[in-house]
């Protein structure tokens, strides 16, 4: 099925959810509201005509000036029909929660963790939503556009002070207090 036909079917079934669809080169992007993203994904996955069994990618994009600041991009591919559709779940900044699709595609597990790590998007229903690439105690979300590009001069690793206290009596460590 041509991606544009899939979009037509989506409009038929989830008419009120679809915000817009765009086309660039040969790829079709559909923006949808975030509330029924799980249903939409499930439909695309289960329907034998679309059969999107392979989630090639899931990532976030940050548009600070848009109405919906964050987009979660679901890049779906069908191993059977060899067609691709890219669905964008639109997430506003003040309600930064979207349903997890981990139950549909297991591969979404880590991709969602990464999107959470990098953008702070919360995936409701995710079994194990932790930071993945950044350290657990990291502050801020690095891939957001407003994240500072340079560190401060007096910045140091968290817990370094505690470590220094802990080993202040220890000559081997040779930490200048």
């Amino acid at each position: 099925m041509e991606p544009i036909e899939i979009v037509a079917r989506l409009r038929e079934k989830f008419g009120s959810e679809i915000l817009q669809d765009t086309q660039f080169r040969d790829q079709v992007f559909v923006s949808v509201k975030k509330d029924r993203i799980l249903d939409i994904c499930k439909f695309l996955h289960d329907d034998p005509d679309t059969n999107m069994d392979f989630l090639a990618d899931l990532c976030g994009v940050d548009y600070p000036d848009n109405e919906f600041r964050f987009e979660v991009i679901y890049n779906m591919y069908s191993m059977q029909h060899h067609h691709r559709l890219i669905v964008k779940g639109m997430v506003p900044e003040n309600d930064i929660v979207i349903d997890s699709v981990e139950s549909i595609w297991s591969t979404a597990d880590w991709h969602e963790r990464e999107a959470c790590d990098m953008f702070g998007i919360v995936f409701a229903g995710h079994p194990d939503l932790r930071r993945i690439l950044m350290p657990e105690d990291w502050e801020g979300y690095p891939l957001r556009k407003d994240y500072p590009l340079k560190g401060r001069k007096d910045w140091e690793y968290k817990g370094f002070e505690e470590l220094k206290d802990l080993h202040s009596h220890d000559k081997e460590w040779n930490i200048q207090a």
């Binding site: 090639a56 990618d57 890049n75 597990d109 880590w110 990464e114």
Partner: peptide, 12 residues
């Protein structure tokens, strides 16, 4: 965005 195969493979 880089969709890297290794990342997915480690997750499995």
């Amino acid at each position: 965005r880089v969709r890297s195969p290794s990342f997915v493979h480690v997750s499995a």
